[in-house]
Amino acid sequence: MKISFSVNGERADLDVEPRRTLADALRDDCGLTGTHLGCEHGVCGACTILIDGEPARACLMFAVQVDGASVSTVEGLQGTDGELHPVQEAFVACHGLQCGFCTPGMLMSACHLLDTKPDADRETIRAEMSGNICRCTGYQSIVDAVERAREGMCVPAVRDSNTAAPWGATFPEE
C-alpha cells in the first residue's frame, strides 16, 4: 500500500505491506533507527514516538495507520544547528541514560509530559514516565533529568546522603 506521512517535518512516501509495523517502516524504510524495539508487544515503551503530538507505540501500529499523519521521532529533537533539546541536555547532565536503548522512548515521553503537564511534580513524573521501562538506571536519574528539563536548574543525579532530607520526629509522606 502506498502511504505518505510527515516525519520530523519531512515528507515520507512509502509502499508497504499492510502488516508492516510503523516501527519497522520508520527504522528500515525511513532509516530512522533511533526508535528502538524492546518488546514488540506494547509494554516497554522503547518505541514511543509522537503522532500528531500524541505519544504512541510504534510497535503496536501498522505503518498504514499514519497515512497523512505527522510523526515525530528522537531524530527530530536536536535543532538543525546541532543544539540539543533541553530534555536531551538534561538527560546527559543527570546521567539519565546508561546503555541508551530505552532513551529515545524516554525522551519522547518526557517531551510529551513537559508539553502537557509543565508543572508535573516528582510524583507525577514518576507516574507519567512509568510506561517506559529502563533496565539500567534505576529511574532516579531519569526523573531528575525530567525535573531538570522542566526547571532548567541543577538537580543531583543521585542524591547524596548528606543532602537528602532525612526525617525527624514526624514522618513525611515521601
Binding site: V43, A127, R135, D160
Partner: peptide, 19 residues
C-alpha cells in the same frame, strides 16, 4: 511476555540515597 513478567518502572522504584 512483559505483561506477565513484571519489570519495575519509575512508579515502583523509589528515590534512593547512595553514600
Amino acid at each position: 511476555t512483559l505483561l506477565d513478567y513484571l519489570m519495575p518502572t519509575s512508579a515502583e522504584v523509589p528515590d534512593m540515597v547512595i553514600g
